[in-house]
Amino acid sequence: MFSSLFTRRQWVLFSALLLFWLILMNSLATDVLITGVVVALLITFTCGNGLTFFTEFRWSREAVVAGFLYYGYFFSELVKSNIRLAQIVISPSLPINPGIVKIRTELTSQMGRLMLANSITMTPGTLTVELDGEWLYVHWVTVEHEDIESATRHLAAGFERYLKVIYG
């Protein structure tokens, strides 16, 4: 019945929102359910064309495996760079060397680029300032490479390897 009313993208968004709500409320009472459905419908119709986590997701076995590997890699990077930044913050001389470098991504999908920018931002020490097509401008607390190729290899290549498989 709803399949004609909703696009696939809207279906995914609606289900995710409703699930989120139900887990948060931890109840299946009628009033909770009705509130959830109404609000999820409103959001789906007003913002239904935005990007979601599964937009452009390639539904293959490799993509799912790469998804898990990606999160493993992401969390190990998160911990490593957090410790590095913490060391900078507590050392008395504050050894920073900040600058904004430019890197070039090979990813072509919107969602892939967004995930790359977010991953770079989430890793402490690097912060995506601007996204412009295939170019990313990254603020780096300790600039180690100024030219585009080696900065790309250093900052983006690790994430790109997985994102290429997941989103393309």
Binding site: L85, V89, L94, I96, P98, P124
Partner: peptide
């Protein structure tokens, strides 16, 4: 501590919002 010590806004964002993630 990073929020206080870092010299400019970008570096403060780095310290203030991101060490807090972990």
């Amino acid at each position: 501590v990073g929020l206080v010590r870092m010299p400019d806004t970008y570096n403060r964002i780095q310290a203030g919002t991101k060490t807090t993630t972990l």
